[in-house]
Write a protein that binds this DNA or RNA. Structure first.
Ligand SMILES: NC(=O)c1ccc[n+]([C@@H]2O[C@H](COP(=O)([O-])OP(=O)(O)OC[C@H]3O[C@@H](n4cnc5c(N)ncnc54)[C@H](O)[C@@H]3O)[C@@H](O)[C@H]2O)c1
Ligand SMILES: NC(=O)c1ccc[n+]([C@@H]2O[C@H](COP(=O)([O-])OP(=O)(O)OC[C@H]3O[C@@H](n4cnc5c(N)ncnc54)[C@H](O)[C@@H]3O)[C@@H](O)[C@H]2O)c1
Lengths: 219, 219
DNA sequence: TTTATCTTGTGAAGCTTTTCACAAACAGGC
DNA sequence: GCCTGTTTGTGAAAAGCTTCACAAGATAAA
């Protein structure tokens, strides 16, 4: 086993996820192979980038031919850790939480929301498609019993930090955070922030500021 | 007015949005000033990064003191183009669409969903908090009449490309896309992709692959 | 077998972003 | 007015990421 390689960049991983989706589609369309050029086109990047990304993990292609779709799809799943099932705990059974819960594609990819936790007594006890909403007090117990390592935080920003800490104490190692606050947790805990207002603001800047706001105002 | 400066990087813009939120909080807490160090801490970056980011747009701080919270907040709003109101059209009144529609913070930041469009006849005609759901056929008319430049795509992946093109033809210049497909549009159209499965997969990789999958498998 | 054509895998080059480090500026106390 | 302690703004260095360009491997056809 080789020693620690230079770690894989986040952007590479995110692209692998895009490639995987494209490969799924190609597979459904019964395309046997795909070249880096075509894969790049479909995933919105460059052929060289595709090859560089993949070459970090092995040599999956055949020169002159390209990549065999089905095996490459399997390789990517393995690299991304998607062969196993990932039980997930959802904290916050509100608007965004329920949308996520009902989204079928997560489960298809192996992410299964096996527990839902909420603070609101009016929601606790309800059943969502077989999953009972638990009170926040049971969070730790639920996480431990179900062995979940991934958590989705879909609660107001005020409570996000404290609840994230509770998740970590219960054994959660990765968090997808929808609350618009920066979580401060131990460095080995992986956190992905989804900040939709920020996405809109980036659009706002691009439309408003592209020509205008790049000029520094000095006196 | 200076000629075209080297364009501002996307990561800088995204951080500005984070700074803005932190400044809002500091403002509410009546903190008069903030140092780059503290701002960095709260936004999850480094002090040097904060100063570099801000210095692209002007000199907003005072040496020895830091930045005055309220004026800096206003500067950032101006840079990001948030002084004006941004009317937004929402395409897809489903699970994620309704969560977004009901999210109050967008409006607070100036992003106001003024039109909702859906294909489902059962949904068309309903009123959401004063906004009537329109049929897809009216998309172009609605966009033109309301003068919306921003669109949110919250429909299944199959229809996303065609509908995105319809949005662009109607005059939309920026799109926030929740459908998990890469949109191919004219380069002057700004698109931000929100891919939640990808976010979970990045977590999966980090937990599964951190120690394991970085080793290339060669024969 | 040889030739023509394709496409990968990958060092090296080029580019972008982040970090470093320090002079210059400012406030407050004496 | 001058010293002390602080913090910005910014070139320069370092690190990281993407693109380039091509040798090497593979196929197919003659
Ligand atoms: N709705 C959106 O489209 C949207 C968009 C961007 C960001 N967000 C963010 O996502 C988060 C959730 O938003 P939402 O619109 O679903 O809110 P919501 O009010 O609809 O739902 C929040 C849910 O969390 C529960 N809750 C509150 N505090 C809790 C706690 N400490 N522990 C457990 N449960 C708790 C509430 O009872 C409620 O059911 C917020 O941080 C919001 O800023 C939402
Ligand atoms: N729900 C989630 O949490 C979630 C998570 C990640 C990604 N997404 C993506 O967001 C998109 C929407 O997901 P959803 O869960 O809200 O789906 P949904 O089925 O609940 O809602 C989709 C809505 O779009 C409407 N629609 C379909 N085709 C249309 C068209 N051509 N024009 C106008 N309206 C049309 C449907 O009538 C429906 O109301 C999908 O691409 C999905 O992959 C959703």
């Amino acid at each position: 086993m080789p020693p620690n390689l230079p770690s894989v960049s986040d952007s590479t991983i995110r692209r692998l996820s895009l490639y995987l989706r494209v490969l799924e589609e190609l597979n459904e369309a019964s395309e046997p192979t795909v070249s880096s050029r075509r894969l790049a086109e479909l995933a919105g990047t460059s052929a060289a980038q595709v090859r560089k990304d993949l070459s970090r993990f092995g040599s999956f292609g055949k020169r002159g031919l390209g990549y065999a779709v089905d095996p490459l799809e399997r390789h990517l799943r393995e690299i991304l850790g998607l062969q196993r099932r990932w039980p997930v705990v959802l904290v916050g059974a509100g608007r965004i939480g329920s949308a996520l819960f009902e989204y079928p594609y997560f489960r298809e990819r192996g992410f299964e929301i096996v527990a839902v936790v909420d603070r609101d007594p009016a929601k606790v006890g309800r059943r969502w498609n077989g999953v009972k909403i638990e009170p926040v007090e049971s969070l730790s117990k639920v996480v431990r019993e179900l062995g979940t390592e991934l958590g989705i935080l879909a609660i107001p920003a005020d409570d996000a930090q404290a609840t994230a800490e509770a998740l970590v104490n219960a054994g959660i190692r990765g968090i997808l955070n929808f609350a618009p606050v920066q979580l401060h947790l131990r460095p080995e805990i992986v956190v992905n922030e989804v900040n939709l207002t920020l996405e809109l603001e980036a659009l706002s800047f691009a439309l408003h500021g592209s020509s205008r706001a790049t000029s520094p105002e000095r006196d």
